Every structure is written in C-alpha cells, then in structure tokens.
Amino acid sequence: MSKLFVSEHPLIHTKMAMLRDEQTGTKEFREIIGEVASLLLYEATRDLPLKEVQVKTPIATATCKTIDTKLAMVPILRAGLGMTDGLLNLLPAAKIGHIGLYRDETTLEPVEYYCKLPLDIEERTVFLTDPMLATGGSADAAIGFLKARGVKNIIFLCILAATEGVERLQKNHPDVDIYAAAYDDGSLNEHGYIVPGLGDAGDRIFGTK
C-alpha cells in the first residue's frame, strides 16, 4: 500500500489555520498555498536518488551530491496551478505538464478536457498536484492518464486530504505515495467538499468564489 504522509510541522499547522479561515483574502490565500506546497515538496523529495559530483569552490574541489532523476510537475487544472510556483521555487529545472479535469456536479466524477505533458514524461518522476483530495476522483483519473503514458514514478501532493480520497488512491494506485499538509477524517458533505475543509480551493485561489 502507498505511503500517506501528513505533515506535523508547526509552520504548516500555522499556515493551514490561515488557509481554513474564511476571512483570508484571495492574494494571501494564493501566497500561502504556494508556501505550503514548497514545504510539502521538501518532505516529498527526501528519498529521491542522489549522485556524486565534483564542484570547484573558491578554495578547493568538493565532492557534493545532487538529485539524480528527471523531474516533472503536473498540476490538475485549475486549482493545482496554485501550487506550481511554490514547487518551482525549489525545483526550477523541472518540466511542467497539465491535466485538465472538471467535476460533474451530478455524478461527482471527473471529466477530462485537456492533457498536455512533456514528451519524455515516462522518464521522469512526476509530482502530481491538486490542493484537495476529497472523493479522489480527479486524482485517480489523472494518475491513470499518467500511467497510460508510461509514467512509473508518481508522487501525489495535496494541501488537504480526506479519508474517502486517500482510501480510493491507496486501493487503485498502491504504488503512488500521498503527501498532504493536513488530513480531515470527517465525511464529505452533499457537494463532495471536505468537512471542515477550507472551501473550494480553486475559487479561493483565483478569486471566483
């Protein structure tokens, strides 16, 4: 079964309180999403392979280590875009793909409308991002799209996860680890939103609420 990592870092706890607050405005909400994404990526990259390199310092030659794998960020549109800048702050050389999904308001199931990925995506470790893991439908579908294109190493990053979504991913994709800034173990409401949650992340990021 895939690993579920939920952060207990004081910085993330503090920033999550701000994200949950309904009084937090669009600009601040967007900035905090990026900050939390950066902190989460720090944890998610902990086990990436390394290689030794020789670096000439002003004094002598040093033996150093660098990440030894190609990387890609793939946000699930549109809300996943809110995490991208925060990730690129740490890994600016990573390539970017996009998967566009919307949720059918009747069935709550995802519908694909766009998918554009780097040509060598199958050679890369992919960080798939979406702020909310609620029913898990969008993440489940997006992981399926990536696997169909030959991707073997996928790590899912979210700001807030719920039990239903976690269980769905662990059942359907036991090879995909999940990194969440916070976890709500309550049920979803009738609209499929996480309770207590933080509302619609996409609306709050882009000011369309």
Rank of each mutant, 00 (worst) to 15 (best):
D68H: 13
G80K: 05
S138P: 03
L188G: 04
L50R: 13
G34K: 04
L157I: 15
K3A: 04
I59T: 12
I178A: 10
V55A: 11
M18K: 14
L91H: 05
L40N: 05
L77H: 03
I154N: 02
L198N: 08
R103T: 07
G34F: 02
A93L: 11
E122H: 14
T106F: 03
G80I: 05
L88F: 13
G186T: 11
M132R: 01
E43D: 13
I155P: 00
A182V: 08
V195F: 01
V36T: 02
Y179K: 09
G207T: 08
I12P: 03
M16E: 11
H98G: 01
E8M: 10
G202C: 09
E164C: 08
E190L: 04
L4V: 05
M18R: 15
A162H: 13
K147H: 08
I67S: 03
G25W: 08
G25V: 06
E22T: 12
H9F: 07
E28A: 13
L81Y: 11
V151T: 14
T208Q: 05
E122W: 10
L119Y: 06
G97D: 10
G100R: 14
P174I: 00
L39P: 00
Y183G: 11
Y193G: 02
F156A: 09
L88C: 02
T26M: 14
E164P: 02
A72K: 10
G80L: 07
K171L: 06
L101T: 00
G202E: 08
L11D: 11
Q170F: 01
D85N: 12
E43S: 12
R204G: 08
V195N: 06
L87M: 14
A141W: 14
H173N: 03
G82R: 08
F206A: 01
D68K: 12
L11N: 10
P49T: 00
